[in-house]
Design a protein around this nucleic acid. Structure first.
Length: 117
DNA sequence: GGTGTGACCAGCT
DNA sequence: AAGCTGGCCACAC
């Protein structure tokens, strides 16, 4: 995993990247699910903040597979183009309707449940 | 080095 | 039922 500049030890931040990279193809998860998996429910905001930093990272992070708990593409505006996130998801076979993932209940990938710890 | 803020979530009012 | 608030951790000014 990548070490962020100015940090000598791994943090909550890097754990987020690990989980995001583990998201399978054609699947999506929520910020809260990742935060919950890492042990801090209220840290969901940090997950989003980590995604913002993912752009700065040299490693490719599938941030488009991370949405809010409603399946809404809240962070689409932070991609290169507002529609880029939707296009990436659609290219994986995920159906998006009105900036929201359709059948999110089936596509939802809960790390705590799938990884199983 | 204190303060503000951020791609969120859940609980109150 | 819907709007507001607090909380969580890391980073920029």
């Amino acid at each position: 995993m990548e070490k962020l500049p100015g940090k000598d030890h791994y943090t909550f931040f890097e754990n987020v990247f690990e989980v995001v990279k583990l998201i399978p193809y054609a699947r999506a998860t929520s910020y809260g699910a990742i935060a919950n998996y890492l042990g801090s429910r209220g840290s969901a905001r940090m997950v989003g903040w980590a995604m913002n930093a993912s752009h700065h990272s040299t490693v490719s992070i599938p941030a488009h597979r991370v949405v809010n708990r409603n399946g809404l593409l809240t962070g689409k505006h932070h991609f290169g183009s507002p529609d880029l996130m939707q296009q990436l998801l659609e290219s994986e076979g995920i159906v998006i309707e009105n900036d929201q993932i359709k059948n999110f209940g089936e596509i939802f990938w809960d790390p705590a449940k799938e990884i199983g710890f």
